Amino acid sequence: MKMALGFLTVILIASFAPFAYASDPSPLQDFCVAVNDSIATVFVNGKICKNPKMVVADDFFFSGLNKPGNTSNPLGSKVTAVNVNQIPGLNTLGVSLVRIDYAPYGLNPPHTHPRATEVLVVLEGTLYVGFVTSNPADPNQKNKLFTKYLYPGDVFVFPQGLIHFQFNVGHTNAIAFAGLSSQNPGVITIANAVFGSDPPINQDVLTKAFRVEKNVIDYLQAQFWWNID
């Protein structure tokens, strides 16, 4: 009897496991339109709800993704985000969207989304994309890189939290759209975070981590690191 009960308990826990790993909490109502942070008096994991009686259609609306982003920057790319900060009605719904514009040879540099998986679809141009796996259990193995050349209509997935990038390898502009599995995916641009933090990371840490001389770290920390969005 105890063995059967224990087996049943394991099955029940396993059946609920997928829900425990969801990026954003599931909604408990039709919608929870976000209140602007500047007027909120309560802080929660996400945003508090607007009175449903005050909700209007514009709370679920955004206009402008037909307009190209300004790629006149050192990276030659521009991410236009549409998350809960642009559409309050996305609050608790667990999705968001971005448009990414790339100048010729423009780069969306290595970065991660700590709270979301990303699904990218190319509309125009040719992109070289990829992501790197987390540290393998076997210390003799290296982090594996998955890459692909994408053309209009192609789709590629970047798993949640993994470092990934996109590079326009064409002579013309490129455009892609991406859906993300969080109302607020977050973004950590690797070079910016490591070499452009405020205050800067101790140089002894970086020289040992990257196995380079101090003058290399001096140079990198002195650069202007451009955020992608």
Results as ranks from 00 to 15, higher is better:
189 T>V: 14
216 V>M: 09
24 D>Y: 04
19 F>C: 07
15 S>D: 09
187 V>D: 01
78 K>L: 05
74 P>M: 07
1 M>K: 10
107 L>T: 12
46 G>F: 07
12 L>P: 00
53 K>P: 00
215 N>T: 15
122 V>R: 00
180 L>G: 00
117 T>V: 12
32 C>G: 03
30 D>P: 08
135 N>I: 15
172 T>L: 05
191 A>N: 08
3 M>S: 13
135 N>E: 14
116 A>V: 05
117 T>H: 03
137 A>S: 13
167 F>R: 01
81 A>N: 06
188 I>P: 00
88 P>K: 02
143 N>S: 14
6 G>N: 13
52 P>D: 09
50 K>N: 08
25 P>S: 10
71 T>R: 02
166 Q>E: 14
213 E>V: 12
86 Q>S: 06
35 V>W: 05
209 A>N: 06
170 G>F: 01
207 T>I: 15
226 W>A: 06
148 K>R: 15
2 K>I: 14
79 V>M: 04
90 L>F: 15
171 H>Q: 13
154 D>M: 03
2 K>A: 14
118 E>L: 04
52 P>H: 09
127 L>Q: 04
201 I>E: 03
112 T>D: 02
214 K>I: 15
81 A>L: 13
148 K>C: 07
189 T>Y: 03
127 L>I: 12
161 G>K: 03
148 K>Q: 14
130 G>A: 07
114 P>C: 08
108 N>Q: 09
25 P>N: 09
77 S>H: 01
160 Q>P: 01
185 P>I: 04
174 A>N: 00
68 P>F: 11
226 W>V: 11
78 K>M: 12
102 Y>D: 00
179 G>I: 11
30 D>S: 13
184 N>R: 03
217 I>T: 05
125 G>F: 08
39 I>K: 07
112 T>R: 04
19 F>E: 10
7 F>K: 10
87 I>R: 01
94 G>R: 02
93 L>G: 00
